[in-house]
Design a protein around this nucleic acid. Structure first.
Lengths: 114, 114
DNA sequence: ATTATATGCAACCGCACGGTTGCACATAAC
DNA sequence: GTTATGTGCAACCGTGCGGTTGCATATAAT
């Protein structure tokens, strides 16, 4: 009976910062850009953006803190790339919630039909 | 354009507020609770929470603003329930990004092998 | 009618976030 | 060398967020 609370709690604490990192338009645009266009330096990633290069740099650090991107220093520029595993983590969490929901629906259906 | 999307999928500007709504621990706990335990009134949803009932009420309104939950007034209490369609929207968006990523990998592979 | 319960509204607080500007510091390029 | 480019660091600003407290209001329960 206590299985749900003891098992689900740590995952919530883990998933919330992940979604929070995705929950900004500028950052989501960065993710989409990295996903579609491949790695790039900060100036490259700032070129088509409305905000400053510093803002992009900050956002990249936030995404890095969430494990969604990583950087490699090459010469005087740092190249940032997507870490798709973390994206699949978010994906998986949504899957889990959806599965809980479906189970609840099944239980409700069984209750109504009995 | 064989890559054209089947149905109108959430764009960046639409998905960001959705993830932002999911990006809070208290709200994510509410989602999990509603998904696993079914609908409930505000006081019911606040019972096991560490924060105040008002905080829960605010969070429910935020989730409602994101289309993730809905409420129905029944007597003096309002019953809140999950709207799983919106969850699948977030799911779908992550799918899109992952697909872009996979395509980019394929293109890179083709480039390297050529 | 009185009391108890469930919610809503409004003000307030602390603080982190998104963003900017300015300057310093590397690493190129000439 | 000097100059140009790419990044980092620090301070600052406005605003919104998460949360609380206090009170008002609506619906039940007695």
């Amino acid at each position: 009976m206590s299985r749900a609370s003891t098992v689900a709690a740590p995952q919530v604490r883990d998933a919330a910062p992940l979604f929070a990192a995705l929950g900004d338009e500028t950052r989501l645009r960065l993710i989409a850009r990295l996903s579609a266009g491949g790695p790039g330096s900060i100036t490259q990633l700032s070129e088509k953006s409305a905000v400053t290069r510093q803002a992009i740099s900050k956002h990249l650090r936030v995404l890095s803190g969430a494990g969604l991107v990583g950087s490699t220093r090459r010469g005087r520029e740092s190249v940032w790339e997507l870490k798709p595993k973390r994206l699949s983590d978010a994906h998986e969490y949504l899957d889990r919630i959806s599965r809980q929901w479906d189970d609840a629906l099944d239980r409700l259906k069984g209750f109504v039909e009995s």
